[in-house]
Design a protein around this nucleic acid. Structure first.
Lengths: 342, 342
DNA sequence: TCCCTCGGGACATTATATGACCCGCCGGGG
DNA sequence: CCCCGGCGGGTCATATAATGTCCCGAGGGA
């Protein structure tokens, strides 16, 4: 039993206060400058009580209010960073991590407080955690393979150039998908490589092609080469999606989507749709790394949060290819209950 | 900046809550079983608010209430122990220690949260701190010299037999004084030796004698021997008194007392009365160690708390004989302001 | 046995937090 | 340019929680 535990025993009402103010600060950090009324709506509490909290935090010098709204001070940023440890302890996250590692057979679970679905500001924390972890394992000359998705885009952003080994090559494992170019694996590779001062490759191909063209595309030397490089990556970091979200992004019509869901698809990764047991229920003919390629990669890191992705995470993890899973509390708690862990 | 600092920034109202409940628990520990009304009086707050606090703490399992009053649970004891670290941090005690070490030229300051004058329950904390420190420095075969006083008596009580080097000899440095035999150096030596499984000597003499008899008493072989042993002690731990309190204990009448005070006497130790600069303004012809004997003792530990003793502590410390000073926050804060430290 | 203090219940009263609505200000867009 | 929407901040009635006050039956010690 340590200091914080004793403190919580002495002041039980501390928990909810910390909860409220912590998420408030987190929202302020990510949405700044933000107005009081809007903030209240995001927090799900009334305007007046939000205001009281803001007054307290302003007196403490954690935030400043101006005519444009509320913003964090430098001290507020610092405090917020430190608070993550506190909240981890309040939520018993270490325990959750250890239990899930055992129950899911994953080498390492990293759980970030919060739930991306209920508070999207947490995406930055998740991304920071991923970036911090990756920085710890990257070595000089490594090949780092990356997937696409909003989460990975944020991870790439969060890499700072400090303390990063040189000569890292970042290689995308998928072609383009949908419209938003910023979340393609290609752009992510660029951003990440820039941020760590490494080099990158590009996979100039659509993500999903008609089967008849697949072979032709794969025979293209520059594409083959990039895919081959991805296969012998030292580290692979990939996102995770719910089946529904990814299907929509791929432009499924309602009928196909319903069929997919009916087949039990809950999660998606690498162009494969998984059911809750980790079985592949649908496969796309895609340009890029395949699931079976993961086996050869020494370190596979899965990143994703938001409780709606819990099934997806479980499906992907149960394939057994994932070495490190970085997720949020929303997912972790749901996994706990799915696995009937107390 | 660490976790607790961030937490306090986030929840500023935490300070007073911790303050209230911490001192409540401390009183409960030392006065248990204690009634709600009495407790309220000691805390200086109303009965009703005390009751609310008690209800919260009982729900947390830190205390139990029965028909005899309030008591700590085992968990409550544990939490209370851990809370001392928290309170130390809340009160910035490390900083105070470092500053006072420099300002007073003392090798080591150990400051315990609280003020013995306003809350006597803290005496146990002070004694525990002293006991813990002494246990850390005692070595096999050491001679440990002890003075008298209520504080030292508590220190002796607080020694547990665990992890204590053997063959320690405890020797009193003063004869008997006043009526209450439990706080004589002699009894303290006995208690302490018993608790650490060592041996003890006794100084069978009054503390204060008429000058004409002094030489005769000092020539008594068994007394000379004990005093000689005290002079070559490895460690000396002694208490500290206000001039007024000690004079009263020695039976001064009002006139003599006023004269003493008029001479600037503020503190007492070893039968000497000091003024605020550490000058000796009065000396008693006493049986036992003299001030000048301290110079030869490698480690002199001074123990005393309660803000009324601040002048006394400063006087004794300014003699330069003290290597380690164990005191409470009441003294420390007053010393800070006397020395104009911010 | 009596009596004193214990914890706990009850309730009017007060302090505090909240809801609701207002204002003047500022900046961006028409 | 001006207008308008969102901004922070003030105000005050009201809801909610904390507190003061008094009481009760129980249990332990003289």
């Amino acid at each position: 039993m340590d200091d914080l535990v004793a403190l919580r025993k002495l002041v039980p009402e501390l928990d909810e206060v910390v909860e409220r103010r912590y998420s408030l600060l987190k929202i302020v950090r990510n949405e700044a400058p933000i107005g009081r009324r809007f903030l209240a709506a995001l927090l799900g509490s009334s305007e007046r009580v939000t205001r009281t909290e803001l007054e307290i935090l302003r007196e403490q010098g954690l935030i400043v209010t101006s005519s444009v709204g509320v913003e964090l001070t430098a001290q507020g940023e610092q405090v917020l960073t430190l608070l993550q440890n506190v909240v981890r302890e309040f939520h018993d996250i270490e325990y959750v991590e250890r239990r899930l590692e055992k129950a899911l057979g994953v080498g390492k679970m990293i759980v970030v407080p919060g739930d991306l679905d209920s508070n999207p500001s947490g995406k930055r924390d998740l991304a920071l955690a991923a970036a911090r972890y990756l920085k710890g394992v990257l070595r000089e000359g490594h090949v780092l393979a990356v997937s696409g998705g909003t989460t990975l885009a944020k991870v790439a952003e969060c890499f700072s150039g400090q303390d990063v080994p040189k000569n890292v090559t970042v290689v995308p494992i998928r072609g383009g998908l949908g419209e938003d170019a910023k979340i393609h694996a290609n752009s992510i590779a660029v951003t990440l490589a820039d941020n760590i001062g490494g080099s990158y490759r590009q996979l100039h191909a659509p993500e999903d092609v008609l089967p008849c063209y697949l072979e032709q595309i794969l025979s293209e030397p520059r594409i083959r080469e990039v895919i081959a490089l991805g296969r012998r990556a030292d580290i692979l970091v990939h996102g995770i999606g719910t089946a529904e979200e990814m299907a929509r992004r791929r432009g499924f019509d309602d009928a196909s989507l319903m069929e997919l869901i009916a087949d039990g698809a809950v999660g998606e990764a690498f162009g494969c749709y998984f059911d809750a047991h980790g079985n592949i229920v649908r496969n796309t003919t895609s340009v890029g790394l395949r699931l079976e390629d993961l086996e050869r990669i020494p370190l596979v890191v899965t990143v994703g949060g938001g409780h709606s992705k819990a099934w997806a995470v479980m499906a992907v993890l149960s394939r057994g290819y994932c070495d490190v899973c970085i997720t949020d509390e929303g997912v972790a708690r749901r996994l706990m209950s799915l696995k009937e862990i107390t």
